[in-house]
């Protein structure tokens, strides 16, 4: 069993954890978005409430939730440990840094990651905790969403969400293709396709998420 510890505490093993959990979370974003798109159906929230009720009561979803939380935790904890190690690897910095070097989005992964983590806590508190802990009997999930984006934070809750999605887009733009590189999947034929797919994904998915608060704030009529 020594090989397990050696592999996953090595630099490349840690990259493997980042990339596997990252790809898992990328997949989760798609399923989450597909459910959220029900918010755009013009039925005053019937479909979305039905879906949300299933999501909060189904035992299968409960089990998957544990896996999801584990995915987040591994990604976050591993990311923090790597960032600390990386900071320590250059105790004395440069006086002058010039920027021909790397791709823009790749430079701020710990920072965008940290912001997304703060966003995540606020997001879970606004919706999951509200319906599971604070008001367990409240089944009007649609009402909670529309109220939050129309009135929350003195009318600025929606803007926080849009900002979070912009930073998520930055994080995904590097993260998507980086996950493949870490797995050793760099190929003359396929890497350009992966990069294009990653760029598209990092724009389309956060934009679709961001459309929700924008819709409720500016286009929704009760």
């Amino acid at each position: 069993m020594g090989w397990l510890k050696e592999t996953f505490t090595s630099s490349i093993g840690r990259k493997l954890i980042m990339s596997i959990t990252g790809l898992f979370l990328i997949g989760f974003l798609l399923t989450h978005l597909s459910g959220n798109l029900l918010l755009f159906i013009q039925d005053q929230g019937v479909a979305f409430n039905e879906y949300s009720k299933f999501m909060s009561t189904s035992p299968i979803i409960r089990v998957l939730e544990v896996v999801l939380v584990a995915g987040f935790l591994f990604h976050i904890v591993d990311g923090i440990m790597l960032s600390i190690k990386n900071k320590k690897s250059r105790p004395v910095g440069y006086k002058k840094r010039s920027g021909s070097e790397s791709s823009f989005f790749s430079k701020f992964m710990p920072q965008t990651g940290l912001f997304i983590f703060i966003y995540l806590i606020i997001h879970i508190n606004s919706f999951t905790i509200k319906h599971r802990v604070v008001e367990p009997g409240n089944l009007d999930f649609y009402g909670t969403v529309s109220d939050a984006f129309r009135y929350g934070w003195g009318g600025f809750y929606w803007a926080f969400y849009v900002l979070a999605m912009v930073l998520l887009a930055f994080h995904l733009n590097h993260g998507f293709q980086s996950a493949f590189q870490s797995l050793g999947l760099n190929h003359k034929k396929y890497s350009p396709i992966i990069k294009t797919l990653g760029s598209l994904y990092s724009i389309v998915v956060p934009a679709a998420f961001a459309a929700i608060p924008v819709y409720f704030r500016f286009f929704y009529t009760a």
Binding site: I12, L82, E101, K107, L183, N186
Partner: peptide, 28 residues
């Protein structure tokens, strides 16, 4: 040494233009 975050800064500054394709091969 620190860990690789696939930024590509190394290949941009390498005097021999060594590609990060080789890092992927090492990972593999």
């Amino acid at each position: 040494f620190g860990n690789c975050t696939n930024t590509g800064a190394c290949e941009a500054e390498c005097p021999k233009s060594i590609s990060i394709r080789h890092i992927a091969r090492m990972n593999r």
